[in-house]
Write a protein that binds this DNA or RNA. Structure first.
Length: 201
DNA sequence: AAGTGGATTGGCT
DNA sequence: GCCAATCCACTTG
């Protein structure tokens, strides 16, 4: 499989547009063990200071959120309980916004992904969640701050996306009015999206 | 220097 | 459905 890495300019898109533009594109991770990749089928937008659910809400600038204040297209990884979550920094420097990658449809290195995700029985469980896809691709805090238009971790040209659906984000019940913003995007009907099937219509 | 809680997952009831 | 696992950044003393 040959991958065509994205142009750095792609990530300058406004966050909500980037979150939708990424659906159907590929996320590729190269390691010594081999290369694993998947089509992006679910994302969430986190719109910086205005967004109560964002880590950068109110312009909070700390060691953790620092990379979001810089140039777009870099990786913002953070740890959640036992898992690592991957975000792509979006918009221009000074705008601390990002797009959380929530689910992938595996398309290369599937054997490697299955090995890393020992316990996942079905193909649709390999990367159907933000913590799962990090595990499947071997993404960790080592990747924090890396540019996402060149190896070892990058976004690449993908396939034609299906219809894109939008709905409220997941796991942010304590985020006030931001709780209901329809800033989660996914490919309608794709079985590799996270969570239950109820909302995937 | 210690306590708190979270953009999750998977296993058990 | 509910709950424990288990790490680290951030807050507070």
């Amino acid at each position: 499989m040959e991958w065509k890495a994205a142009e750095p300019e792609l990530f300058r898109l406004p966050t909500l547009e980037l979150a939708q533009a990424l659906i159907g594109m590929a996320l590729v991770k190269e390691t010594q063990e081999g290369t694993a990749a998947g089509w992006i089928v679910e994302t969430e937008a986190y719109c910086g200071p205005e967004d109560r659910a964002a880590h950068s809400f109110g312009g909070r600038r700390t060691a953790r959120t620092e990379v979001m204040f810089g140039e777009p297209g870099h990786a913002y990884a953070h740890v959640m309980h036992t898992h690592c979550l991957l975000n792509i920094v979006s918009a221009d420097a000074g705008c601390p916004q990002g797009v959380l990658i929530r689910a992938l449809e595996p398309c290369a290195g599937i054997e490697l992904m299955e090995k890393r995700r020992a316990g996942a029985k079905k193909l649709t469980e390999l990367a159907s969640g933000p913590g799962k896809l990090s595990r499947a691709l071997g993404i960790s805090m080592e990747d924090y701050g890396r540019p996402l238009w060149m190896p070892p971790l990058y976004v690449a040209a993908g396939r034609e996306p299906g219809e894109i659906a939008a709905g409220p984000r997941i796991g942010i019940e304590n985020s006030g009015e931001a709780r209901d913003y329809p800033w989660r995007f996914w490919e309608r009907g794709n079985p590799h999206v996270s969570g239950r099937k109820s909302w995937n219509r």
